[in-house]
Amino acid sequence: MDPILALGSVLALVAAATGLGLAWRARQGRFTEVAEAPALTPADVASTAQFGAEATLVQFSTEHCSRCPGTHRMLAGVARSRPGVVHVEVDLTHRADLARRFQVLQTPTTLILDRTGRVQARVGGAPHKAGIIAHLDDLPGSRHATLAR
């Protein structure tokens, strides 16, 4: 191939990879509202801990996940600072069944459950703290939502 053409192909490869990266980044940490999901129990996510009285943050991780420890720290910090909110981390490494059941395609993936255990929102990738807090505030029946009314 002509060197100029080869150079053009190489640049096109870089451009394609950049486009891929931008598309991936735009989707990172984005919240999806989950409509009408059945209520979960701690057993559903192989958790021995109880769910929170106000809300539960269920984080799916694996042992090979560079952003899971940071997400764990952030979510655990949010749970500590808000009474009634519990953070549960679920390692999918040995629970492929849970990965399939909850259709986890990337780690971390975080589910926000309301007080009844219903999934209200879902975040793929490392979530932003402000987004998590805003969602907790907006959960049906949360103290914040009641006060706002």
Partner: peptide, 25 residues
Amino acid sequence: FLNAVFDYCLGCQLYLLLVRSGLLG
């Protein structure tokens, strides 16, 4: 490139997909 520029972890992604397919873990 995605790793260097966007901090994308392909290994993490593939690991999860291998777990899901039952090949790992």
